[in-house]
Design a protein around this nucleic acid. Structure first.
Lengths: 339, 339
DNA sequence: AATTAGCACTCTAAGCTCTAGAGTGCTAAC
DNA sequence: GTTAGCACTCTAGAGCTTAGAGTGCTAATT
């Protein structure tokens, strides 16, 4: 798959220019704007080759070229140059993460997704920590009134879940404490996904006369397992309106409707990252979902503690400022993980 | 402002037809479709009158008529007929609210907003209970680990707020309990908006050696006061895409961007309802915000307990199925308040 | 052999013109 | 007061035309 140095130059120029202008790039433009010392005719020949090899496309005979999906892929893999964010941008990132108030993981994620989308002008997708892989830390029940209590589940990743549950009237505070203590003893240190099956068998036996009341606890744990949807955080969803390729209302519609289907998004974000480290870029049809086949997704996992727990992704048109997006993502994840 | 019975009939027919078809309505159409026993010519004369009086508009000379804002207003005030939802729809409403699991107010609201938007095909806006007007019920602090605790605030409207706070290491469980007990004693029964000023003066004196730790508590209370944004719940935001008047991308964009500005929405929903009972309809420019001046908003307040605490609204194009929307809103609020 | 100038050719976007069709307003008859 | 009839108006859409951008090929140049 060796391209000549000149072809690389030209491919890079096409990508660069098309990303900037969203207009097909002609040979004259390249010769003029990227002063590579060849005449437009030479560049035309090269571009014809590149097209034949599948790296470029021509919307119609008398238009310039645009990168094909394969072209973007080659650009991303081989040609893209690392760029530095400028100081203002870095400061903005540091600023967000140095805020003292950031104690709640959900808040942090929300802020991060705002930050990422506003730095890139694309849409940010963040998958929060997976409760399933977090270790159980503590469970408590706080009485609210006669009939109800607040069940709080704390995981070692800092995730806190609550749920209002019904308490049987007959239950005394002492009994409640004993039950909670027992649960805590039995569950300590387990990861959440290893809990349910054990709970249901063993704990039921231990606490069989409180089963009714415990159902809600099981429910919370089970919900935590099926909670893929509630892990998805979006930022800058309206940024697509800034992209000329989404001038068409149908496309905007299908994307925005997708944004409401968190289960699908969770899948989109977690699938391609299984077992991979570092930044992953999925271009156009490389993505699973039909709705984003004109989009690219730049994403990476992040860790809290030692475990991989979630994903941060940036979704934009295939005509995306890949190098910039990668730089932003690296910086942000770096800071994020330091918390 | 007396319109002749015939003019009323015709105005009603124009509104009805335009709401259904989104096309300007001609005299022939009315004569045929609404068999009112007059020839098109007669209807034309009447329509010319109605136009002169400001109830109808003509997009251009050779098009039919469409209702003006004044026309809609008259329709809503005088002509609109009450309709019944069909049994399936009623069942759906009952179904949602009869669910046993609905213990958390936030959940209930979320479900309601889904329900309303899917029943109407418009966008639902719900303003959750105002914590400010709720009475304080209980405050508790649950230790999470050495440095952190979960502060839980329960209000009588069922609203529960939590916040992770830092606990001073030195603080013993006993001390913590005493502080919490003291706070509960002092705050009992007060509405939230009457707390802050008192707290800051009196409690600081009582508990002056724990001030550092209490700051976070004050912060939560203060945030509760400024929480207008977090009270807004939206459903069916992508429904605008179904409305032909939003075929224009700019309009969709400005509306969707508005949907992200919860503070503005909170204002939009609470302003017009101050001191009013029952259903309020704001048509087009009657609304405060520029972005919704081609929309109508049908809304009403709801109570939990005796107090008015929030608002449910339905936002659609001015060409809206007012009677249907009103029926849905009545049913839903009725069920909602029974909880 | 590689590069380039030149030129005919292709295709699109945008502006024009034209026309069918819908709907009106007016007049005169009922 | 109502209606039939008719000339008139306006739009949406189809078809045509053209300027401009960009190409691919050929032949000349380095």
């Amino acid at each position: 798959m060796g391209l000549s140095a000149r072809k690389m130059e030209i491919l890079r120029a096409v990508v660069t220019d098309y990303v900037k202008t969203a207009q097909p790039v002609g040979s004259r433009t390249i010769a003029r704007r990227y002063k590579m010392g060849f005449s437009p005719a030479t560049i035309r020949n090269e571009m014809a080759d590149l097209e034949e090899m599948g790296y470029l496309l021509q919307p119609h005979t008398s238009a310039g070229r645009i990168p094909s999906q394969k072209g973007y892929r080659y650009y991303v893999d081989e040609l893209m140059q690392e760029i530095q964010l400028d100081d203002d941008e870095k400061k903005r990132i540091y600023g967000v993460f140095s805020f003292e108030k950031m104690r709640e993981i959900e808040n942090i994620i929300r802020q991060t997704s705002q930050l990422v989308s506003s730095l890139t002008n694309y849409t940010s997708l963040i998958l929060g920590p997976r409760l399933q892989k977090s270790a159980f830390k503590k469970l408590q029940i706080m009485p609210i009134d006669r009939q109800r209590g607040l069940l709080v589940l704390v995981a070692d990743t800092g995730v806190i879940k609550n749920k209002v549950i019904n308490l049987p009237q007959a239950l005394s505070q002492g009994e409640l404490n004993r039950i909670v203590a027992h649960l805590n003893r039995r569950l300590e240190g387990l990861t959440i996904d290893r809990i349910t099956s054990r709970l249901i068998r063993e704990l039921r036996r231990d606490l069989y006369h409180h089963i009714n009341f415990l159902e809600a606890t099981f429910t919370l744990l089970e919900e935590s397992l099926a909670e893929d949807e509630s892990r998805v955080f979006l930022g800058g969803t309206t940024n697509i309106f800034n992209q000329p390729e989404f001038g068409n209302i149908e496309k905007v519609k299908s994307l925005l409707m997708l944004f409401e289907q968190h289960a699908l998004l969770a899948n989109l974000l977690s699938r391609p990252l299984a077992g991979v480290e570092g930044i992953v870029i999925k271009i156009g049809r490389e993505n699973i979902l039909e709705e984003v086949q004109e989009c690219s997704l730049v994403m990476t996992t992040y860790c809290l503690g030692k475990e991989v727990v979630g994903t941060i992704g940036i979704l934009g048109p295939t005509r995306m400022e890949y190098s910039r997006v990668v730089a932003v993502l690296q910086q942000v994840v770096g800071q994020f993980e330091r918390l």
